[in-house]
Write a protein that binds this DNA or RNA. Structure first.
Lengths: 197, 197, 197, 197
DNA sequence: CATGAATGAGGCTTCATTCAT
DNA sequence: TATGAATGAAGCCTCATTCAT
């Protein structure tokens, strides 16, 4: 099996890469994007400054990949959460809770998603596209099943994401405790039933 | 009229201050917070680099004040918009449209509100507190008038702001056209009626 | 008397000039040459920054003249002291005491004399030349009168000045109290009788 | 030999440190303290500007250490000179000649000792304290041996240092040739025998 | 591969000097 | 003449990136 041959080296490489990416996110979480230096990331990752350049072309690329990697992790844990659940709305609820949980432990990436310099944007559709699509499909299911009224799934999914990220950003910016499950449920309730009498 | 005496100089000073603050926001909008240099701001404001330091102590202070000033403007234009309108829900609708409009023309400040380095946080309650309170009062009115169901005004107002800022952030990050009035109305509709059947 | 005509203006000009020069010396005394800014001197002199340039071409010239002016004052007070006294050695003693007194009240200038940037030196013979010559003449008198042994007056006068300035510099640098009259007398005693048995 | 292990790097580090310190002194000697820039020091030391900050925290610290280092060298060469010599007065003479020689080659440091901004003073007793003590002990020896009259060694040593530094400062300030050995001897002669008949 | 010392471009800030009022 | 706001050159320092070991 040729594909599995150079595993030892590749695995090590992947392991290092992942360690650096997570270090980068931790640093950004702690000191903000502006003050996140390569030196600091190297320390946090337990490698030398020069080593970073063996794994990433530049600071730019490192932080881009750190963001993408965080989003990939979000997608993975959300998909895992979805495998378990049952009714469409329960699954939607689960997806949202998972997303906020992820952000709770990984707030750095939420910062970075918004913080990055404008020039950066390359992946058209933005970083959360995948997540939005996933939620959008859940909403569509709900509409098909008749538990949701006929809304535009895509646009609605985006609104839901805004609510979620707002919830997290708020606690970040205002130094509040992270949103509790009750906060998330309140948000979902609002989302389901609206504010009109 | 002793109060109005030193107008010539003070007015000029205020004018310059405002011009610099707006230049700062324009620059951040264009190149991002990370790449916004004092040199660039000076150019944009049409003054020399050193002049900035006659009006602001440091880069840090300049950008902080630029954010605060942007928020003040948001509050002002929203309050003005509210003076005109009639029924509570119409006024809420007006406030939201005004807010998004403001962000549309002033996207820089939305970036900066979130972007800033963590250390910065000083005004407890964050920069949007005033705006949240304003919306919160409108919601309360609506509840009293019986057009809204009994929701927590504060938390709901925050959700509304998240929806708004998400709408704007989205178009910034994904290089989409800015949200149209129709987008804003769709968001409000969702907000009013929820997604549940 | 044409010479005395435009006195009113000239007197005022001289007064301002002198005030600025003294302010400059006070500032140097307080914060050192390196940190003595035009702004600071202007404040100390009670005029606007721009005004300094009506009286002096540049910072360079201002501080040069401040040093020279301090030296002129030293010469003046020493000459005055000499008019009174009697025997050559008493007059020498008086000259030395006056010099140290002057430095005591005017330590700034001693700093500046040495501190200035090397490029500055223009008056060949340096700033203390006049003072050295004056002491030198007193020594010569002493030799002629037979109270001093046959020494080279010029070189000896310079040594005496070094002893004096060292005495003052020492207390400046080490934050000691300024040299007392007793200190000066001890120095003079050493100077008169040497250290050899 | 564990103590000598990290020699390669440490030796190199010490070498560079010393090179930079000497470059700093050379630059001060040439252009004066006021005009001594980090850029200039880096050029003189043959390293990049940024490199200076690998060895010293700031400009302030660099120049402080340059002064201290110069004084240490003075002490070292004086002590070496003293090991050789014989009779107390010869040793005193040797110490003085060494000191002046040192200053002759290293005039920068003499400037800097006096020039520094007032704030700097930290080592209580000032930079020349060690040297004064050394001379003071030599004088005491002379008194014990009966070749010197009963003088206060400390105060006298200080006077001697003033004479020396004056000799050097004079040639610096007046652009004279550096003091010759004959000048030094004349100074010492004066010091030994005084000027009184 | 990994390291970290060295580099130097570039940013923030100060301050001597000018000039319109 | 006096002012002090404005200027911009120049200095200190940081940090992304390179490269010899």
């Amino acid at each position: 099996m040729a594909e599995a041959v150079r595993t030892k080296e590749e695995v090590l490489k992947d392991f290092r890469t992942q360690a650096i990416l997570e270090a980068a996110r931790r640093v950004v979480a702690e000191v903000g994007y502006v003050d996140a230096s390569m030196e600091r990331v190297a320390q946090e990752a337990g490698v030398a400054k020069g080593t970073l350049y063996l794994y990433f072309e530049s600071k730019e690329e490192l932080f881009e990949r750190a963001v993408d990697n965080g989003l990939d992790q979000l997608m993975d844990s959300t998909r895992t959460a979805l495998e378990a659940a049952g009714a469409p709305l329960d699954r939607l609820r689960a997806a949202v809770h998972t997303g906020v949980d992820h952000a709770r432990q990984n707030s750095a990436f939420f910062q970075a998603v918004v913080t990055a310099r404008p020039a950066r944007r390359r992946r058209p559709g933005g970083g959360l596209r995948g997540y939005v699509t996933l939620l959008s499909e859940l909403l569509e299911e709900g509409v098909r099943d008749g538990v949701l009224r006929s809304i535009e799934p895509e646009r609605t999914a985006r609104m839901l994401v805004h609510g979620m990220s707002g919830l997290v950003a708020e606690s970040l910016l205002d130094d509040l405790p992270f949103p509790s499950d009750a906060d998330v449920d309140a948000m979902l309730d609002l989302f389901f039933h609206g504010i009109a009498r």
